[in-house]
Amino acid sequence: MIYALMASGLNLIFGVLHVLNIAHGEFMFGGAFVSWFMWNELGFHPLLTVPFAAVAMFLVGVVLQVGLIERVMKENIVVSLILLFGVSLAVQGIGIRLFSVNPRVISHYEGSFDIGGVLLAKSRLTVALAAIPVLVLVHLYLKYSKYGIATKATAQNAEIAEACGINVQRVRYVTMGLAGAMAGVAGSLTIIILPFTPQSGFSYGVIAFVVAVVGGLGSFYGSIVAAVLLGVGQNVLAWKTDQLLSDALIYLFLVAALVIRPSGLASLAKAGTR
């Protein structure tokens, strides 16, 4: 579910902005540490901090877009990629300065449920359940709101969307903000389950990339399906065989998926319905 939040955000960005956001994990770090700070210093309930993390990362996303990415929109994709890599490194540096390299975790939910012999950690269950409404909300937004429709139009053809009177620039700002908010939520939920350091975000970002690609770059729904498949698959593999093999297989899966169907799961679904 966390993967789904991350990857679908990445895909929104790629679809609308044609930018590979390698700094996506840093949004996650931002969200995680907003939550951690509010829980640790101000005593908020962990789930209550989630909206704050979302709003904060929304703003950061908009600022990033306005201040930096907008200036290289016309360039080759590598330019924005390296720019964002710079952002990622700088954020990691600042993060370490502020919070040190020690891992932090919100240890609010202890213990686990026993469902038919399968142990489920309370924290994991809470997080999975919390992520779903967020995804549903984003889905509703994309499908029904005025901005959502404008976003889709921009993704399909920015020039025509612009000619139709859509403020494409503002759509890009909102998209970046929205994706940032989703990653922020992902971060503030993750830190309830797993310890987080200022440099963890980056590795999550890489996994999110894999998920996003398998799901079909630019496809919001494909990435959610891929995230669930990959999350379940990885855990089953790690459980049935050894961890090492499971890691190798994930990446082989990625390469295979790309070679067989470069446009990802989403195009498979489309071909199926035709």
């Binding site: 710079g86 490194l89 700088a90 954020v91 540096g93 600042i94 300065r97």
Partner: peptide, 8 residues
């Protein structure tokens, strides 16, 4: 951290 910030 300083290195990361500078390179970034």
């Amino acid at each position: 951290e300083l290195y990361l910030m500078m390179v970034g």
